[in-house]
């Protein structure tokens, strides 16, 4: 049940440098979020992941989309119907 997703997000939050995590479905509904991750960003995250797929000739391939700023990086990837976003301090 959702406890396993919750536990997995906690595990990811414990990784060094991670300041937020978010899981959304492929339509942009936020399933869970922790830390700095904004629930309202869920739609953008899954849209970015979906758009990234179109850059490959094989649309089954899911790339990692990464947004970098001076202070923070967001890593976004979708897998099956789930989009994960990890907010990490810039290294």
């Amino acid at each position: 049940m959702e406890e396993s997703l919750d536990k997995q997000l906690d595990d990811t939050m414990n990784v060094h440098g991670v300041v937020g995590v978010l899981a959304a479905d492929h339509q942009g509904l936020c399933l869970a979020s922790k830390g700095n991750a904004q629930v309202s960003g869920a739609g953008l995250m899954s849209s970015l992941a979906e758009a990234g797929k179109q850059l490959s000739s094989d649309e089954q391939k899911c790339p990692v989309v990464c947004l970098e700023s001076d202070t923070c990086n967001i890593l976004i990837k979708s897998h099956d119907n789930v989009t994960m976003a990890i907010y990490k301090v810039a290294s």
């Binding site: 953008l44 990234g52 970098e68």
Partner: peptide, 25 residues
């Protein structure tokens, strides 16, 4: 994607626009 990315709030401090967008295969 760039238009979407420019709407993402990267940190609680709002004035932190993205510098680089990477799509990694």
């Amino acid at each position: 994607m760039v238009h979407m990315a420019s709407r993402v709030q990267l940190s609680p401090d709002r004035n932190d626009p993205f510098k680089r967008l990477s799509v990694v295969f």
